[in-house]
Design a protein around this nucleic acid. Structure first.
Lengths: 286, 286
DNA sequence: CGGGACGTTGACTCAAATCAATAACCGTGG
DNA sequence: CCACGGTTATTGATTTGAGTCAACGTCCCG
């Protein structure tokens, strides 16, 4: 409700700054972005495409609207959601550089989800109705589409993987491991990063209440696996976090249970006094 | 553990009956199966493909093995799973006629999931390494692939939808509604059907304990929404079931119990007292 | 310096996991 | 035909993890 209001105002704001600013570019830019090794440069440059910038909170497309454009994320991070009719917003995932947005609309004609920019973003756009014919004309583009489809399917499997975990801590651990790998894949640090989404979004992605996300972060910090300050995360024990993430059904005890009731002396145990107010073992205290 | 043993023995058994029985056929058969309206028949008939039959329990491909073939389900139902290293098996979904199996392996070269036949099945197979070039040569095939990718993405979203539900009853309701629609899409009854999978598989798909699935079936039966005997389900109140499936976070009670049900009077609405004791509306009890 | 969104923490309650026993089902074979 | 083991399904008793509600602290932006 109030979120929708915010979205709209943000949209208007962005529209003022750059009113539907679709800069012209070509398919060659798109293929370069997608790191296609070699392709028919001349042909690609004859195919027009668009480029668009978005600010945090801007909506790239809304669930249910007619799908006119297939997008390629050039930079920034998007949040993909789908909204139940009672207003509950389920986060389906996050997309960053080189991911496709709107591919799941190819068959149906309207977007089944909403894409919202989480930070400064830019995308390339290709008209949806040209996609099929273009994929015939440009084999390189076709390959990109198929690879992206395969990757998209596995991205969704990741979400399933997270939601399938029993405990909230394990879900969060899996999410963080995924995020860490994603950061690594982009050449960034796998142990220190800034989460672009708010707790509520994480909670929705994990399928838990947002209060539980806070508690789980606290638990992971207590176990010495990470330190967290707001959206800045530093993973202290990546191996331990991965082990925890791997745990299923009640055998998570190997990785997690020991510290819980005991004073957790085994792990390094920098948790002198458990409740010292906000951030006993937190980052921002240092 | 024991399941693996069973799978292997079944595989061997099937291998005895029809040892790798890949019947020859052509791409034209595949395109006909996929209901492509018009295509280059001559060209399609020049492209070889294979057909294979499977019995219940047979494994079409194992997670992690080299992906040689893209499959098109010709008949029957498959279970898609992925197995954690500790042996826990997460059911990712079910596939029936006209769905693609192995498309998520296109980019990586090995299957990220396992496909097991739940009943008598048959599939067409197309060599994975030919898929890209074939999609260039046969626009109809290319269109099929893109449509399937889009549909596959939305199938996964369905699973997310189920796992995102708060209560076990709502999850089961969503699953049953999905299954009902799927049956309807195949021209079968939307209200009476036979589930091909065991409770354990349903539980894994729903992300709950298998005992909870039983209880949820019981609850739905108590509420007069369906009757169930083993794997045979009859939906008595499809509208009510859909309303229950739609409910989220805490307002599920509105949908499940008295208040909201008044909207759908025609159904009998025999939901007087929530606690009626076991087996109030069961089929086999009558 | 508010105001509003975001984040953390506590208390309470309840739905569901777990453990466990029983009962139905099914193919096999005496 | 029924007896038999194995798998699958239901149901009960008990415990606990996490949802909900609510209060408070924090950050940021106008």
């Amino acid at each position: 409700m109030s979120e929708i209001h915010v979205d709209l105002s943000r949209d208007l704001c962005a529209a003022r700054v750059s009113p539907l600013a679709n800069h012209r570019c070509t398919m060659a830019d798109v293929l370069r972005l997608m790191q296609v090794p070699n392709f028919d440069l001349e042909a690609a440059e004859r195919v027009p495409a668009t480029m668009r910038r978005l600010s945090p909170g801007d909506t790239l497309f809304h669930e249910g609207t007619h799908a006119e454009t297939l997008y390629f994320v050039r930079g920034g991070t998007f949040k993909l959601t789908c909204t139940a009719e009672d207003g509950y917003e389920q986060v389906l995932g996050f997309a960053d550089v080189r991911e496709l947005l709107g591919q799941d609309a190819l068959g149906v004609g309207e977007y089944p989800s909403t894409a919202v920019a989480l930070d400064e973003c830019s995308v390339y756009g290709v008209p949806m109705r040209d996609v099929l014919s273009l994929s015939q004309q440009l084999p390189a583009f076709n390959a990109v589409l198929h690879r992206a489809a395969s990757l998209g399917l596995r991205r969704r499997a990741q979400l399933v993987d997270v939601l399938a975990a029993v405990s909230a801590e394990v879900r969060l651990a899996r999410f963080l491991v995924q995020w860490s790998r994603r950061m690594g894949g982009m050449g960034l640090s796998t142990t220190r990063f800034h989460l672009r989404m708010c707790r509520r979004d994480i909670a929705s992605y994990l399928g838990v209440a947002h209060a539980t996300v806070s508690r789980s972060f606290g638990a992971l910090a207590d176990w010495g696996l990470l330190s967290v300050s707001n959206r800045d995360v530093e993973i202290l024990g990546l191996a331990g976090l991965e082990r925890l993430a791997r745990s299923t059904r009640r055998n998570g005890e190997d990785a997690a249970e020991a510290p819980r009731l005991r004073g957790m002396t085994a792990l390094g145990a920098s948790v002198a006094s458990p409740r010292l107010g906000p951030g006993a073992g937190k980052l921002h205290a240092a």
